[in-house]
């Protein structure tokens, strides 16, 4: 059962990711990315990380993609060339990606050690966040604050 769902979500994720990259209409790119995020959320459920899935949906689908949609709706993007123009740009991009995949394949696949797929409890995560990782947690709070100030400063008209 979960095998079928794994393949459904995987195909959805890959197809929508390709659609993000290859679609000429930016709005459709945004919507494809939302579909892609939902299929990744499905994978999180399959891995038993229900809480992570909910946070993923709230953060990505609920906040980040709404921002993207806002920006794309408000800008007139009709006359922007969507793709690089020269054929060797595509060639170089393809070669770079191929080299990267080769590097990943030789390096990652040897050291990959998957954890046992099982139900993930909320309590250990929360405890880890507030004890072991308390300093990074506080630092990310400061990061958020500085981002808020920075965005307000950037957004003000001159």
């Amino acid at each position: 059962m979960s095998d079928i769902f794994f393949w459904v979500f995987s195909v959805m994720a890959v197809v929508s990711a390709l659609s993000v990259v290859l679609n000429r209409n930016p709005i459709y790119s945004v919507l494809s990315l939302i579909v892609c995020f939902f299929s990744i959320a499905g994978h999180y459920v399959l891995m038993g990380a229900l809480f992570l899935c909910a946070v993923h949906i709230v953060v990505y689908a609920g906040a980040i993609m709404v921002l993207f949609l806002f920006v794309i709706m408000l800008m007139n993007l009709k006359d922007v060339p969507e793709f690089v123009s020269k054929w060797w740009h595509f060639g170089a991009a393809g070669a770079a990606v191929a080299a990267m995949v080769f590097g990943l394949a030789t390096h990652l696949f040897q050291s990959y050690n998957p954890r046992v797929i099982g139900d993930m409890q909320l309590k250990p995560i929360a405890q880890a966040l507030f004890t072991t990782y308390a300093v990074p947690f506080e630092l990310s709070a400061i990061l958020f604050l500085s981002a808020v100030i920075g965005v307000v400063a950037l957004g003000k008209s001159e």
């Binding site: 993000v20 060339p81 969507e82 740009h89 990606v97 990267m100």
Partner: peptide, 23 residues
Amino acid sequence: LVLGCILFSIGTLGVLIRRNVVI
């Protein structure tokens, strides 16, 4: 791991071939 690598490659490809900064 395979799925993650595929998605990562697609994302990299997009960064390299798209000209719209938002994308």
